[in-house]
Design a protein around this nucleic acid. Structure first.
Lengths: 312, 312
DNA sequence: CACTATAATTGTCCAAGACAAAATGTCAAG
DNA sequence: CTTGACATTTTGTCTTGGACAATTATAGTG
């Protein structure tokens, strides 16, 4: 009895809840105080114990938050309503008009099938890989990155939100795409042209797919890149930029990046960089980026990378 | 004056301090209360503001903690002493004798030069890449992974701890190695043999290098692998294992993984997995793994992967 | 020397309060 | 109908100080 109870009614403490939902401990506690949800049980010591189902619901809510919904609205909603909201694909955002990361509705690629989703659903890893490879070969790296991948990414993301896909399936998909891009980049001749671009992600941002996509586009144009992976401390981004005398620092922000921190983080980095180094920011997490900041350029879409490297 | 002061005296709030040091907010606060360090300044609102130098020192201390030192001992130490401790390579651990992840002193590879470190120091990305490629071609993937990489990793880690290498240089090195391994794995025929192995990392563990190294060794032997990248929720690891009917789940833990959480996490996952699925754990973070746990096998070194896939 | 009991160390949790930034609502003027 | 200025609500994160379990060190005993 004192042993670990398995799947159905398993309980997790607040630390695990934080890690599995992406919501901070403080947030979890304050939601409980204010909205009455989540409502964890307590152990003998008074510590919170979250049932698995509440964790699942919290994950769904986190996803909605990332899409611009607000806690007060979605907490009282029923499970069914939540599902509808997220699958309904309603960003509910005061989107700044030039959204283009998601599939541009006017699909420039005469709609390719995108059978990857089906392959994922039937747990067929080989098929996912093969499909991606085929499509890459067929339409070329440029369109694969600027066109197909964004569409596929939102497709997969929506399927997950709608409960049609498990997290591990999204993980698997991401890994495959990452491996594919790395392979593609490695097969290109190393870029040497200017501007020299340093690519990375700030602390708190794990997602590195955006970085890889940009790196692919740049390498494709013969531009020299230097990739530092994810979560480089700001101070080290600046240090690296100086040491390698790059012309541009490019950062990617996913929609999971806390919007509140975007502006301060960018501003802080900007102040640490030499003035002559340009700073590009892009990704779904930059949609809410407020106002122009001097010395910071926001890439509204992947296709805007091209023009930037050949200044008029 | 009220503007942002740049590099030398830049101040960061507690959230950033947490992300950049890897120490929790609670820990930062309680250290301050108990040991008098760190001693952040305060903004107008009473919120903590950590100077850059304290962040640096905290990072160094975190590194020592991961090596088994205790806060009470290292907090009062001088900067010089800290440097000595970490570069002195003294694990100070009640190591369970069979440590082998680090360079085995009896270098089985007749010491290759390992010039990567020098190349890193002089900011020569191309040289790092070339050196790695040359060594891989020369000694082959197996020895590259089991022998050279572990040595190189500790070499780089120690150099960082000794203050000879910046974080961004370590980041760059890691990215290169990852890209190289992914490339090497992709160039091998996809594994099909049994056992089928699911590779990933638990939430909280970002480092994916260990996973890639194991994946390379497995693929080299024709074993089928399924890689989910980093930080898969436990529940989803179990779900993926079931959906893909794998025989083994393999987890990698870096030394940065909080030792306290290792046993509960592993135990929790074990209880969610079907009994017939084997669970392998490995990496520097598993050195302190206490006692045998039924159904869990700890890989004491990369070379112990081989024997496991062909049960006697 | 091995073992055990006691004490110190250490990370994490809790509660309730506070506040700034952002979102939202209101109202009037163009 | 839109725009802008202002007031209000919402929301996340930070604060303090206390508590406790789990680990590790120390002393004491056979």
């Amino acid at each position: 009895m004192a042993v670990n109870d398995s799947a159905p009614g398993s309980l997790v403490n607040i630390a695990v809840a934080e890690r599995e939902t992406g919501l901070g401990k403080d947030t979890l506690r304050v939601w409980e105080r204010r909205y009455g949800f989540p409502r964890p049980r307590r152990d003998a010591h008074g510590d919170r114990l979250y049932p698995r189902e509440q964790i699942t619901r919290l994950r769904l809510m986190k996803r909605l938050l990332d899409n611009g919904h607000r806690p007060g609205r979605i907490v009282p909603a029923s499970d069914a309503e939540l599902q509808e909201l997220s699958s309904g694909n309603v960003p509910a955002l005061p989107v700044s008009s030039d959204l283009d990361y998601a599939a541009s509705q006017t699909a420039s690629t005469p709609d390719l099938p995108l059978n990857e989703l089906a392959a994922l659903k039937r747990h067929d890893p080989t098929a996912v890989r093969t499909l991606l490879l085929q499509q890459l070969a067929r339409i070329g790296l440029e369109r694969f990155v600027t066109d197909l991948l964004p569409r596929l990414n939102t497709l997969i993301g929506d399927a997950w939100a709608a409960g049609e896909l498990a997290i591990f399936q999204e993980h698997f998909y991401t890994e495959q795409v990452k491996a594919l891009l790395i392979q593609a980049i490695n097969n290109l001749p190393a870029g040497t042209r200017r501007p020299r671009v340093l690519l990375t992600t700030v602390p708190g941002e794990h997602h590195v797919l955006g970085v890889l996509m940009v790196e692919a586009l740049l390498t494709l144009r013969g531009v020299g890149t230097l990739s530092l992976g994810a979560q480089t401390p700001l101070h080290d981004i600046a240090a690296a930029a100086a040491a390698h005398t790059v012309d541009v620092v490019a950062l990617s922000f996913s929609s999971a990046f806390p919007a509140r921190q975007l502006t301060p983080v960018v501003s802080e980095l900007r102040s640490q960089l030499p003035a002559e180094v340009r700073l590009w920011i892009g990704g779904m997490g930059t949609l809410g980026f407020q106002g122009p900041m001097t010395g910071v350029e926001r890439l509204s879409s992947l296709s805007s990378v091209g023009p930037l490297i050949d200044p008029v």
